[in-house]
């Protein structure tokens, strides 16, 4: 299966529903952190240009806040596309974004345990 098909299968998103209004990127709170923005994720998956996304830090800057999903006028669900590309990346061998040995340096008194749990769920296979 090629990467495009894989991402479409994991996300369950029909990227052809996108009418390129940019509301996802207009609403995104992580916009400035991201190299590729939500509307670019949708467009690049549509055109099959997935390699740049797989190696981009943008995958780990998406907060999964779902503002783009809530506000997309066409029901495209861009966050699901980002999630699918992320899963496609970390499912490869040795591609875990968060490893157990990284954890001690990330911990401080203000970090809730729940955050670590969800980070593991989100960034590791």
């Amino acid at each position: 299966m090629d990467k495009r098909e894989e991402v479409l299968l994991i996300s369950g998103v029909d990227v052809l529903k996108c009418m390129r209004c940019g509301k996802c990127s207009a609403t995104c709170p992580s916009y400035d952190e991201m190299e590729y923005h939500p509307h670019q994720f949708v467009y690049m998956v549509e055109t099959g240009n997935i390699e740049p996304l797989l190696s981009s830090e943008s995958l780990y800057k998406c907060l999964s806040c779902f503002a783009c999903v809530e506000r997309c006028p066409r029901g495209v669900e861009p966050a699901k596309v980002v999630e699918a590309v992320r899963l496609s990346a970390i499912r490869q061998k040795g591609a875990n974004h968060l490893k157990a040995e990284n954890v001690p340096e990330l911990i401080d008194d203000d970090t809730p345990q729940q955050l670590l749990m969800s980070a593991f769920r989100k960034y590791s296979k």
């Binding site: 209004c21 940019g22 509301k23 990127s25 207009a26 609403t27 995104c28 916009y31 400035d32």
Partner: peptide, 28 residues
């Protein structure tokens, strides 16, 4: 400007913060 407004937030000084996409320059 080609793009959509994502959020309008009223500010304390009575103005409105309009957060929007500019798709041509790829900026928020």
């Amino acid at each position: 400007i080609k793009g959509m407004v994502g959020k309008v937030a009223p500010k304390a000084d009575g103005t409105l913060d309009v957060q929007a996409s500019d798709l041509i320059s790829n900026e928020q």
